[in-house]
């Protein structure tokens, strides 16, 4: 009971946070992105956990629109990275989403100072993606959608670039299963990949996912990212 109500609180906060990001991406107004974090609605711990779950996309308006982050929001983001390091036995997606957050800070020239880390920029391995069938590949890439950014260069983006047809198949599968979150995440990756078959109809596909699942702010976030992607130029 305690656990489930807390999980529900976390889930709700993640959705609020995603809504903030969507608003910011749509309006170009970065301040609104901080609403949930700076408004004092959620408790500190829950807010931090929610930022960790939404991951690097919490700072997506900063990355795609190149506006400076809100200082309060940035502070919570740094706290979230520090407070929720991956466990030793963490799944690769968990390790990578943490890496993506640290990467986002490095982009802002706000690297974490962790005296224990030998090389804070060192990449985790991505061998699990090379071994994965197209279904698992797409699922994992959708979970790691915050890494789908123009100009991003890491083992995960390289794995995605090697298998555009497989990711496109995963998109078809996700739409067929009505898994809108996975479809939106895969769709965001596809906007970045060369070699996606034209017959996929990606643009209409993204519109369809918005129509069917866009009321979920986590879905809307991925679709907004996909919309801004071609114009976005990162470092």
């Amino acid at each position: 009971m305690e656990q489930s109500s807390t999980s529900a609180l976390l889930q709700g906060t993640v959705l609020d946070l995603a809504s903030d990001v969507v608003s910011a991406l749509r309006s170009g107004d970065h301040v609104r992105a901080g609403g949930t974090l700076t408004g004092g609605g959620a408790g500190e711990g829950v807010a931090r956990a929610a930022v960790r779950v939404l991951g690097a996309d919490t700072l997506l308006p900063t990355a795609l629109l190149r506006v400076p982050p809100d200082p309060g929001q940035l502070a919570v983001f740094k706290d979230a990275v520090a407070a929720h390091p991956p466990r030793d036995d963490a799944a690769p997606a968990v390790v990578w989403s943490h890496w993506a957050m640290a990467r986002a800070l490095r982009r802002l020239e706000q690297p974490l100072t962790d005296p224990l880390a030998d090389d804070p920029g060192a990449e985790p391995g991505a061998g699990w993606l090379d071994d994965a069938g197209w279904q698992l590949l797409t699922h994992q890439l959708a979970v790691l959608a915050p890494l789908a950014l123009p100009g991003e260069e890491c083992a995960v983006t390289r794995a995605a670039r090697r298998r555009p047809v497989d990711v496109a198949r995963g998109f078809v599968r996700a739409v067929r299963r009505r898994d809108w979150q996975q479809a939106a995440g895969a769709g965001r990756w596809l906007t970045l990949l060369d070699g996606v078959p034209d017959s996929l109809g990606l643009e209409a596909g993204l519109d369809f996912v918005r129509l069917m699942g866009g009321s979920d702010p986590r879905v809307a976030l991925q679709l907004e990212a996909a919309r801004l992607m071609p114009a976005g130029v990162l470092l």
Partner: peptide, 16 residues
């Protein structure tokens, strides 16, 4: 409560 949250499950969710 926050410490009790299974954040790992939220970070690597199974497919619905």
């Amino acid at each position: 409560r926050t410490e009790n949250i299974d954040i790992e499950a939220a970070l690597d969710p199974a497919e619905p």
